[in-house]
């Protein structure tokens, strides 16, 4: 049995204490570093550039032109460029449900006065367009914001957000029709492969997606080289 050390050398005792505090201190510092790093939400650019993702049906097959309905009253969306960034996929037509070719146009951003050129329609009839489905006013998402086909009684041929009444024109590069929004919807550039009749999303054009510092941050990248197109009924 070790005897009780009645009168240990005080300076040695303090030295041991200092060493103990030092070791525990660096251990706690190491742990705290992790805690602090992980409590701050990650905001790094998870993608170095815009990925090119093929549009695919839930069963994994690529989307062909025949899978898209002209003036579809249901909401068709896909995520791009990140997992939590939904976009409308529209095949635009006139009131007789014939395809309408959408030409690239110059779109003004009322908030800044800046201009950009919309990519225009893709596909055999140049009628397939896509844009962010997050309202640029206060971030409402489908079904609050949705496309009204040209035969609809209210807002025919427009994208209207039921939250505060912002209206966008998909035939004119998703430009602003009425406020309160001060910014058009960011356009998705679609690339059409005529040989295989498939579509790919390759770029975002226009303002930054609502609520983001950049289109490529604030979410997780989509794994694989396709993104799933789903229909909200």
């Amino acid at each position: 049995m070790p005897q009780e050390n009645k009168n240990p050398d005080l300076s040695r005792r303090n030295f041991l204490k200092a060493m103990g505090v030092l070791a525990v201190g660096v251990g706690v510092a190491g742990i705290l570093r992790g805690v602090v790093i992980d409590i701050i939400p990650p905001n790094q650019n998870v993608e170095s550039g815009y990925p090119t993702l093929q549009l695919a049906l839930p069963n994994g097959n690529p989307v062909h032109t025949s899978d898209l309905i002209v003036n579809n009253p249901q909401i068709v969306i896909f995520n791009y460029p990140l997992q939590n960034e939904p976009n409308f996929l529209l095949r635009l037509g006139d009131s007789n449900n014939n395809d309408v070719a959408v030409q690239p146009t110059e779109v003004t951003i009322p908030a800044t006065g800046a201009k950009f050129t919309s990519p225009g329609g893709a596909g055999p009839y140049k009628s397939v367009v896509a844009s962010s489905a997050i309202c640029q006013h206060l971030g409402c998402v489908p079904p609050e914001i949705r496309f009204h086909p040209p035969n609809d009684t209210s807002y025919p041929g427009k994208i209207h957000c039921d939250c505060h009444g912002s209206t966008y024109d998909p035939y004119q590069g998703f430009s602003v029709v009425t406020g309160p929004t001060q910014s058009p919807l960011p356009n998705v550039k679609l690339v059409y492969d005529a040989t295989n009749d498939t579509y790919s999303a390759s770029l975002m054009i226009g303002p930054v997606i609502y609520g983001r510092t950049s289109d490529l941050s604030g979410g997780n990248p989509i794994s694989g080289n396709s993104t799933e197109v789903t229909t909200i009924s």
Partner: peptide
């Protein structure tokens, strides 16, 4: 840290 605590207890408290 555990070993140092043990050393400290052995030295200071016996």
């Amino acid at each position: 840290s555990a070993v140092l605590t043990k050393i400290y207890r052995a030295y200071a408290y016996g």
